[in-house]
Amino acid sequence: MADIATQTEAKSLHEIIKISRMVVSSLDLDEVLQKILLYARELVETPAGSIALFDETTSTMTLHAGTGLSEEFMMRDSWHVEAGGLTRKILDQRQLFIVDDTLDVSFFNNPLALAEGIRSLIAVPLCIQDTIVGILYLDDFKPRTFDASACEKLAILASFASLSIANARLHEKTSRLASTDGLTGLFNHRQFKRILAQEVTRTQRYSSEMSLLMIDIDNFKHFNDLYGHPCGDRVLTNVARLLQDVFREADHVFRYGGEEFVVILPLSGPKDAVIAAERARDTVESLSVACHGVDHPLGVTVSVGVASLPHDADSGDALLDVADRLMYQAKNQGKNRVHTPQSIKLS
């Protein structure tokens, strides 16, 4: 009998190690979290669960994955970890926290969880040495006693899960740094070329429209020469922030290089593109930038060239060339204006 029990335990541990290897096989954070949640729920046989990641700098938990829970519950996507609270206690203890019946413990007083009908749970801190990654929650809607052997295996899985989350986060950060401009946080020139090719292909495949805006900050050399490069950088970051705010979520804003920005507008024809360009130009014109050592706020304007596919070009490179030439025409004819290949009546 002892041999059979030993063999069963060995087989079970082999299975959990196999599952753990599958968890660490991906570098996509969303995929990693979904795998962890799936395998953990299967291990302890719970109908629901979630994973919240922890930001130690802000002491904030953010819900990143969940299943078996209501939309109302999932909408509470972040919360501050209060000193003395249950979440803080779980993070500090760094060991499985098990509640067989939430109605029997006075410390379980989360109104959202109680309204959800959660009656039993396991909270698994996800840690790597001294670093807290987050918490894995496994929930049931009835009181129950969790199997001790399954909980031991869950602790093993949690160790692999923590490492996998850390690796995925590092990969995500590295990928983001490689694709974004260090000063403004916008996508960089490399990402622009990649996304432009994708959007052109999609536009042509579905016989649709797209537009491109080339935006240049007027008199930018003046800011650098007269007030210094830190002031020029401040102008760039302020304009970048405004451009991110003024365009749609579906649009793509890039720092093309120097003081130039480019915006890709999917599913937008010439008329909509001009409206968007004028809105951006007008918003930037209202900007005042305060620079250290300058006794007055600085006004900023931009010149914009607008081109659309398939109306003004038949390829991504040609579209960029048209928008670029139009932007320089706008600068040569007075700056702070939008130029298009043709006059478009806005009505």
Rank of each mutant, 00 (worst) to 15 (best):
E285Y: 03
S211T: 13
V304Y: 03
G334N: 08
H311S: 12
P266F: 04
A330E: 11
S303Q: 13
A273L: 09
E249C: 01
V300C: 03
E260Q: 06
H222P: 02
A318G: 13
I275E: 11
L326E: 06
V262K: 03
H292P: 06
Q329L: 14
L309G: 10
I275M: 06
H222L: 12
T237W: 03
P310R: 15
F254V: 01
V262E: 08
R325L: 13
R279V: 04
E259Y: 00
M327G: 04
S208L: 05
G316T: 06
R281C: 02
E199N: 12
R325M: 12
V304H: 01
G232I: 08
A280H: 00
G293P: 05
V253M: 00
Q204K: 14
V300Y: 14
V200R: 08
S211A: 15
P266K: 15
R248W: 00
S288N: 07
M327E: 12
P230N: 01
L236T: 03
V304A: 04
V200I: 15
G269H: 06
D251P: 02
T203G: 10
L319V: 08
D245L: 03
L265D: 02
P266D: 05
D251G: 01
S315D: 15
L213N: 03
R281F: 02
G305W: 14
Q329S: 14
N224G: 13
D251H: 01
N224W: 15
D216V: 14
Q198V: 12
P310H: 15
V289C: 04
V300F: 11
Q333F: 14
I275W: 10
Y328Q: 03
E259R: 02
F220E: 09
S288Q: 15
D312T: 09
G299R: 14
S303F: 10
C291K: 08
P310D: 10
P270L: 12
P310T: 10
M327P: 09
L320I: 05
L309Y: 15
V274R: 12
V304N: 04
I215N: 09
T301G: 13
F223A: 09
Y256V: 05
G305E: 13
N332C: 08
G334H: 08
A313W: 15
T301K: 09
S288C: 05
L267C: 07
Y206N: 12
E199W: 05
Q198W: 06
L298D: 02
R281W: 03
Q204L: 12
I264H: 01
H311F: 15
A313I: 06
V322W: 14
D218N: 07
M210F: 01
K221V: 09
H222K: 14
E260Y: 04
Y227I: 11
T283A: 02
S211I: 09
L267P: 05
D225Q: 11
D225G: 08
R234H: 04
H292Q: 11
N336T: 11
A250H: 00
D324R: 04
G305V: 09
I264L: 01
R248G: 02
T283E: 04
K271Y: 10
V274Y: 13
D218G: 05
R337W: 06
P310I: 13
F254W: 00
D295S: 07
A290F: 06
I264F: 00
H292G: 07
C291I: 09
L265I: 07
D233I: 07
M214K: 02
V253F: 00
S208T: 10
S208W: 05
R255K: 04
